[in-house]
Design a protein around this nucleic acid. Structure first.
Lengths: 199, 199
DNA sequence: GGGCATTTTGTGCAAGCGGTCAAAAAGTCG
DNA sequence: CGACTTTTTGACCGCTTGCACAAAATGCCC
């Protein structure tokens, strides 16, 4: 319990959130410690003191990203029919693309970005990403299982396989959207998938 | 026409192929010019003389990657039933995952990797990636159109929407596979999608 | 109010980066 | 054989990076 000593002059959570936005929009490698120092308006030493090195800082931001996303995902799926909610979840990246012209609005899914950039050579990042994937498929499969029981969703495949397919789709859509997306084509593709899931 | 002068001591195409493997497995940022120099067994100056700077070198490698992939894609789809061929195309990244323990065997789709790493801040990379996406959907949509006509594939959605969905899936699968994949789960997901496309 | 624990501040640093360049080497052609 | 053109070679450069550290500042607790 560290109780005494000079108190921290900034809000650690708020700093992490702001770092999340930076890391999200620029990626790990393209965000320098100097960028963080400038954006967070604190000195180098304070940053290292509070968050450890750059890698730990990034991983903490990714974890925050996922925790937030997971909470939203659960909320979206817990009530009402599942397919409209899933449609909303899937099209989210496509719609976010519209705001991409605004400066500072991140692109793509941060889990996906981390997968591409860090996972191949960072075991800890791989763990975070793998855990997020597992959580996503578990949450979605649970929802699909309920929806199969009420005959909203086809039983042609297992909920697990359907959930895995949805993971691939949302990750792929989010990635492809970074290259500039024909929004209507993307929506048509999502609709085709949602229709195929209907009982 | 440069006809005189000291002849190049290495095979340019072969060097590009070898650079492709390096870039593919490590990405752009994690591959240093020194890495290339070591792997290609040529001196810095020769590399710059032959390929321009690192960025041009990488983009040339990506273009070579896509040209090769496109040729294979067309070959796979031009004869026989379309759905088995598509299944093969989709599961390719999942199966490639098995060899990932071998050193130097690249992971994921290089177009996807480029999308994540370069596209957000490199207009030329964005063009190459966008063109590859367009070519993919066009080739696959053509095949699906034929398959819809012979009643192999459902007409519940347009061939374009189906092709777009397949692009998302293959990109997502290829990306997710980098984080370590449950192969059987991935195959079940692909089968669910292929089944959903059946008439 | 004085000692203590902690954060802040700003400088400094070694390493690695992408890229350049001049001299030497190696062919071709008149 | 000698002039010319191109590639090779390897040293070199300026810059940025992530990170460490010492001194000053600040608030808590006895």
């Amino acid at each position: 319990m560290a109780r005494t000593g000079r108190p921290r002059a900034f809000d650690k959570d708020e700093a992490l959130e702001r770092a999340l936005l930076l890391f999200w929009s620029r990626g790990y490698g393209e965000t320098s410690v100097q960028d963080l120092v400038d954006a967070l308006a604190l000195e180098r030493g304070s940053l290292y003191g509070a968050f450890g090195d750059k890698r730990q800082f990034y991983l903490a931001a990714v974890q925050l990203y996922w925790d937030t996303y997971e909470r939203e995902l659960i909320t979206a799926l817990e009530a009402g029919p599942v397919l409209p909610a899933l449609r909303e979840v899937l099209t989210h990246p496509a719609r976010a693309q519209e705001y991409a012209s605004d400066v500072g609005v991140p692109q793509g899914c941060m889990i996906g970005n981390t997968t591409a950039e860090l996972v191949p050579h960072d075991a800890e990042a791989r763990e975070i990403v793998a855990r997020s994937h597992a959580r996503f498929t578990q949450i979605v499969a649970d929802a699909l299982r309920r929806a199969q029981a009420t005959n909203e969703v086809t039983q042609a495949a297992t909920p697990e396989a359907q959930a895995q397919l949805l993971l691939f789709t949302v990750q792929g859509l989010s990635l492809v959207s970074r290259a500039g997306l024909d929004t209507s084509a993307a929506l048509a593709a999502v609709d085709a998938l949602i229709d195929a899931l209907r009982a």
